[in-house]
Amino acid sequence: MTVSTATATTSDPIAPKAVRGSPVGPRSFAAEPGRVVRGIILGIVGVVFLVPIVAMIEFSLRVGQPVDGRQAYGFQHFVAVFDPVNSRAYGVLFQGIVNSIGICAITVLIVLVLLLPTMIFVELKFPGLRRALEFVCIIPITIPSIVLVVGFVPVYSVVAGIFGSHPWTLSFAVGIIVLPYAYRPIAANLRAIEVVVLSEASRSLGAGWTSVLTRVILPNLRRGILSSVFITIAVVLGEYTIASFLSQNTFQTALILVQHTDPYVAVIFALFALIFAFVLLVFIGRLGSGSPRPRRGGPRRLTRRPE
């Protein structure tokens, strides 16, 4: 339930820079903590939060039971993952990963084909509906997925009748869960550019609606779109509730299955997924943190001044 990392970083551009380095002397009155206090707080919290990660790595490297209180370590479990001998044992896990990737792709498609055009459309033609759209997109945060899933069960007995009971059909349900996360980065981006002015300007220069969309609006929304695609992928890969209620095999449900027979492999894949999510989200952070260096061409510097 991350509430938008992208909007959090768009801080007020006209806020006065803090009087850094001004000759005030020892700033004991200042609101901010001293170096030592900051170091102690962040050090303790940082170490505590590192422990489970370190424990996972340690766990995945264990070889056999400890002898005389000494634990042997090695990369055996990592090698075993890719050993063809085990392909039957881990088959369900790899199938789950394949299914999850498929669900990812279709969910991203739902975001790009259903959500994004609607958001642009509302911005251009129905600005009055903006609040309503936001409200709809936020609802899935208010209704826990465990509640929604109770309603998905009967809906999916109909869906299975139409499309068959394939894992990819989960995308429809997951697309709803993803809405709040996908909505925010695009909305923040839309707010930062003058969509109406941009489209009117290009229209008056003779552009058709297609080129307005593909050459003016979408390039300006690149950042928001990328962020919301990445966060969608992160959410889909971590989704467990819906898959488990609708008894489909995805990455997360397969992890639970495999964990009973081979906890090491489960931990190894959880580690991989964590690293993957970290890379994705660091990338989003880079996109969001804005480094507004002027780009060649591109009208992206046309940002709205706060009134």
Binding site: M1, P52, E58, S60, V235, Q252, I256, P263, V267
Partner: peptide
């Protein structure tokens, strides 16, 4: 903050 679910459970089983 995203790290909920099954993987979080594994992390703490290992801890």
């Amino acid at each position: 903050a995203q790290f909920g679910g099954v993987m979080l459970a594994f992390a703490f089983i290992a801890t």
